[in-house]
Design a protein around this nucleic acid. Structure first.
Lengths: 328, 328
DNA sequence: TTATATTAGGTAAACGATTACCCGATTAAA
DNA sequence: TTTAATCGGGTAATCGTTTACCTAATATAA
């Protein structure tokens, strides 16, 4: 229906090759006059290049796919934004996929992304879901935020979760607290187990016994934070909570408030991530900051380099930093 | 590099037409034996269909584009999630674009989406930015959340913003309050002006003078809420705030807290949207709920219907509902 | 004057799938 | 025993670009 290069060629009395070259600015040996004629016609007829035809020929779609658990989660929405911004700057579009940490959905999305011939994939994976599924088409991929074992070569961008959580817990300990709970997600990924390890190691290093009654693991949600303090409170008291992420911290603070327990006077709570709203909740949340937006950018930089065939550092580990606010 | 239908055809000693038909389950007159042979080879060789080749032929990419101001904004991330879920169920992928309410970016994104031959576009537009840009390729489009004047035929999904804000303001008035501030975004869209109108009409209907000193307009951000109360407070006191959205309400509550003004005892505040965290802030936010996730779903339903050529209701206006929590 | 560049374009084969149409062979119906 | 329907496929054009290679004319250099 809409106008094509071929029609422009007819109208301009040249071959379609010439039109293609001119429109793509690859026409060193075409007269200015012909060029102008072609440009004028293209403009007048409202020519819009058909990128799918082009992609078929040049074998590049200038599109990448991102698979994340859930854009509604503030951590991932910031990640998505970082990715999209960086991708757009480099001329790529991004296809968004929400996996809900569901392996089947991940697999399905990887399949359709491959079918759609994306140039690369950024994946926040749940465990080792994809090991087997991306062998066929050798598509560049970078793992973001969560590591998995895989036999294919992938780029990796992570944060030093263990150290981050270690510092968080240590921070609480240095405030003179020893009864510290840990509320987080089940071990669905290396990062979750790393955070748990950081917590445990900090306790050990300071001669504090680890009490399983103080550990509540479910998911990275506000509800988990809420239920977590309620459940732990049934078993015993505590003076601080290390939360697996800020969402959990928000839920925890809410539950504490409901139980008339004051934060930070009676219980100090520290989060992880430093999502946008963390500084606006009450009290403003002390937390371990991840450079979320930047991680997104790094991921596309790495991915684009892989797409372009450059060999490079295939693993970047970013540092966290502790943001002191009012919840401790 | 990766295997194609043609190669499968060779390996199976049939024509590529046959392979295509078999793989697409459009082969009524092919023997089971041949079918099995083809399927086996496809599986063994790890065949992945090339969707871009297919798209070129069938003129459909099974992809839609969504243009929103910012996924990091909780309202839009929920919208995006609603859209992606619904799209996935109907077999579409979604390309995510963040416009930052910037007309140039909107135009550019519309251009690339058209080039990439998306089957349709869902747009949350800033004013009448796109009027001129989507005439060429007649691509189905639905306007979501924000109305604009346009000469092309588009679908529309909105919320009754004016009534929503009217009810919110009325709710405050009926609690015996008359000094009500209004903090919101500049009039970047019909919805923003509609909310402003709702506020003003509620005041008028109850015989309350409109005081411009009580109105602060900037953007739909936490910062605006924060700055808004600080600025208004310099001029005069108030007992309630109608906020253009929940983010603003969060900022406003923070500023009030900083000024030692208690919510809801001294000032009642009501939001708009009912984003996820609103029930978890302190105090839990009373707000005008938009069916955000559902709006996303409705938008893709409408869009897909337009793609399929069905003529249907091209405008849906959803109702808001007032969610009473603790901030009033 | 002849050989060589340069200029201005054209030809046609891809890219990987889909699909309208064709063709023979077998089977069922008349 | 014809005729028609059913079965089991194959041919080749097409979708809209790109691009390696070709041609022919003109300009330049030797």
């Amino acid at each position: 229906m809409s106008i094509t290069i071929k029609k422009i060629a007819e109208l301009a009395n040249v071959s379609s090759a010439t039109v293609s070259k001119v429109l793509n600015d690859k026409a060193p040996y075409i007269s200015e006059e012909t060029k102008k004629r072609i440009f004028d016609i293209a403009k007048k007829e409202g020519y819009i290049p058909n990128a799918v035809a082009k992609s078929l020929k040049v074998k590049s779609t200038k599109t990448i796919g991102i698979i994340i658990p859930d854009v509604m989660n503030l951590f991932f929405s910031e990640l998505a934004r970082g990715i999209e911004d960086a991708a757009e700057k480099r001329g790529y579009s991004v296809i968004l996929c929400n996996s809900d940490n569901n392996k089947e959905k991940e697999k399905k999305y990887i399949q359709v992304l491959q079918e759609k011939m994306v140039d690369g994939i950024i994946l926040t994976a749940s465990e080792k879901s994809v090991e087997r599924s991306l062998n066929m088409r050798k598509i560049p991929m970078v793992l973001l935020d969560r590591d998995i074992n895989t036999d294919v070569r992938v780029g990796k961008i992570f944060v030093d979760n263990e150290t981050g959580e270690y510092e968080a817990c240590k921070y609480l300990i240095e405030k003179g607290i020893r009864d510290i709970a840990f509320i987080s997600s089940n071990v669905i990924s290396k990062s979750s187990s790393q955070r748990l390890n950081g917590y445990k190691r900090a306790l050990s290093d300071h001669g504090i016994m680890i009490d399983e009654d103080l550990i509540y693991l479910d998911s990275y949600t506000i509800e988990t934070g809420f239920n977590g303090v309620l459940e732990i409170l049934k078993k015993r008291n505590f003076k601080g909570i290390c939360c697996g992420n800020d969402l959990i911290a928000i839920g925890a603070i809410n539950a504490l408030k409901q139980k008339q327990i004051r934060v930070p006077e009676n219980v100090k709570v520290i989060g992880f991530d430093d999502i946008q709203i963390s500084k606006y909740i009450n009290p403003p949340l002390t937390t371990v900051k991840q450079p979320i937006y930047q991680m997104g950018k790094e991921a596309v930089d790495m991915l684009v380099n892989m797409i372009n065939g450059y060999d490079m550092d295939y693993e970047i580990i970013l540092r966290t930093s502790l943001i002191e606010r009012m919840s401790c």
